[in-house]
Measured scan of single mutants.
Amino acid sequence: RFRLSPAARNILEKHSLDASQGTATGPRGIFTKEDALKLVQLKQTGK
């Protein structure tokens, strides 16, 4: 289970993504908004 920032949680839910597909870069291993946006971008480019 990942620790998600509220913004990251919202983005992941909106795009039906799972945090385990990305890398948490925030302090103390928190999955940040920026991490979520990177994951969305990867999904949109098909990689």
Rank of each mutant, 00 (worst) to 15 (best):
R1D: 04
F2C: 02
F2M: 15
R3E: 03
R3W: 12
R3V: 14
L4Y: 12
L4N: 14
L4H: 01
L4D: 14
L4W: 02
L4F: 09
S5K: 02
S5Q: 06
S5Y: 00
S5N: 08
S5C: 02
S5H: 01
P6A: 14
A7G: 14
A7P: 01
A7F: 04
R9L: 07
N10E: 15
N10S: 14
N10R: 14
I11L: 08
I11P: 06
I11C: 04
I11T: 04
I11Y: 08
L12F: 03
L12I: 12
L12M: 09
L12V: 13
E13F: 02
E13A: 09
E13Y: 02
E13H: 08
E13G: 06
K14P: 13
H15G: 09
H15P: 03
H15N: 14
H15T: 07
S16L: 02
S16P: 09
S16R: 12
S16C: 10
L17P: 13
L17D: 04
L17S: 04
L17Q: 04
L17G: 03
D18K: 15
D18S: 06
D18C: 07
D18Q: 12
D18L: 02
A19G: 12
A19M: 13
S20N: 11
Q21S: 11
Q21V: 08
Q21F: 04
Q21D: 10
G22C: 06
G22T: 03
G22R: 01
T23P: 05
T23V: 14
A24K: 02
A24D: 02
A24I: 03
A24V: 05
T25P: 03
T25F: 01
T25I: 02
G26H: 05
G26K: 03
G26R: 03
P27S: 10
P27I: 03
P27K: 11
R28I: 00
R28T: 09
R28H: 10
R28V: 05
G29S: 05
G29L: 02
I30S: 11
I30N: 09
I30V: 09
F31D: 05
T32Y: 00
T32G: 04
K33A: 12
K33P: 02
K33T: 13
E34A: 11
E34H: 12
E34F: 06
E34Q: 14
E34C: 05
D35A: 02
D35W: 01
D35P: 04
D35C: 00
D35I: 00
A36C: 07
A36P: 00
A36V: 01
L37I: 07
L37P: 03
L37K: 12
L37G: 10
L37H: 03
K38Y: 00
L39G: 10
V40S: 06
V40Q: 09
V40R: 05
V40A: 07
V40Y: 08
Q41G: 10
Q41P: 10
L42R: 12
L42Y: 13
L42P: 07
L42T: 10
L42H: 02
K43M: 10
K43C: 09
K43P: 04
Q44K: 15
Q44P: 04
Q44F: 08
Q44S: 13
T45L: 11
T45D: 14
G46E: 15
G46D: 07
G46C: 14
K47H: 11
K47Q: 15
K47T: 01
K47A: 15
